[in-house]
Amino acid sequence: MKTLRLVSTAIAIVILLLASMPAFADFALKGSFEKDKSIKLFFGMPVDETWATNKANYTVYEKTDPDILMPVESIALDAPRTTVTLTFKEPLNQTSEYVVDVKDLTSAGKVVGSGTFTVKKSQVSVLLGIIIGAMLINNFVFTKYLGLCIFFGVSQKKETAIGMGITFTLVMILSAIMCWALYSFVLLPLNLSFLKIIVFIGTVSIFVQAVDTILRKINPYLFKRLGVYLVLIVTNCIILAVPLLNADSAAGPFESLSLGVGAGVGFAIALFLMACVREKLEVCRVPATFVGLPIAFIVAGLFALAFLGFSGLSIF
């Protein structure tokens, strides 16, 4: 009896959903980014091939600059003739919104009408893209070569590497947010953006000093574990590079936060991987002239080669 009621409710819900779906009279206007140079349009009905492959029927521009039209290089229609992939000469900026105007859509020989597609990534996927990008694809240590001093300095033991990784990630996230707030609420309104280097380095060192003092009073145990790394963080270039990159790309608060998270976690991963190898290196027979830093550099080079493999990665 109970299952019967459940099934009938389910059927009712499905019928309701179907009824509430829009009729296909005006075609479904949905588009998405494909690779970095192409946009995919879903028409929801088969379209005529001669119409679909004519470049003059599509007008594409970025929503912020409607005057600059994007030239379409090639058009591909899939087998059921419902999806069209437009490929452009220039790579698209996937964090912004694009508008595709379609003229005189023709289906089965007759004109159905014109329409407008908006192609945009959802905020979540943009942010996840930034995090994954900073963590793996453009790992700050292995492909941007930042923070190498600390990277070679504290990667001798796994334990210190983990401590440094955690401390660094936390400080990185907080200082990225703080520098973003200072930059967009103080420096930009006052037209002082040329002072950003001085302001950012000052902010980071004051913040680190403050954390050091507060942690020493509030949680001496944690301070004992992480305190030594705090001082080192100021000399790490990643902590300064992230706010500078954010300022240059005019990133919003969430983008700044994601870049901070990605950079911090990416650095922690790199540090941990390196520490694992260097612990093993201690018991290996390394040629005498290579002992110490030279062999560490070669290992880092091998890691960098491995991280090149992430370069084609695009999940979101």
């Binding site: 292995f142 492909t143 070569y145 040629p287 005498a288 002239t289 290579f290 830093l293 030279p294 062999i295 560490a296 550099f297 070669i298 880092a300 080079g301 091998l302 960098a304 080669l305 991280f307 090149l308």
Partner: peptide, 22 residues
């Protein structure tokens, strides 16, 4: 000229300087 190359070159130059000094 890929990212990895820089690490290799510095590693080998450092080792080379160590060797000369030795």
């Amino acid at each position: 000229i890929l990212p990895a190359g820089g690490f290799f070159v510095i590693g080998f130059i450092m080792a080379g300087m160590n060797y000369i000094e030795y």
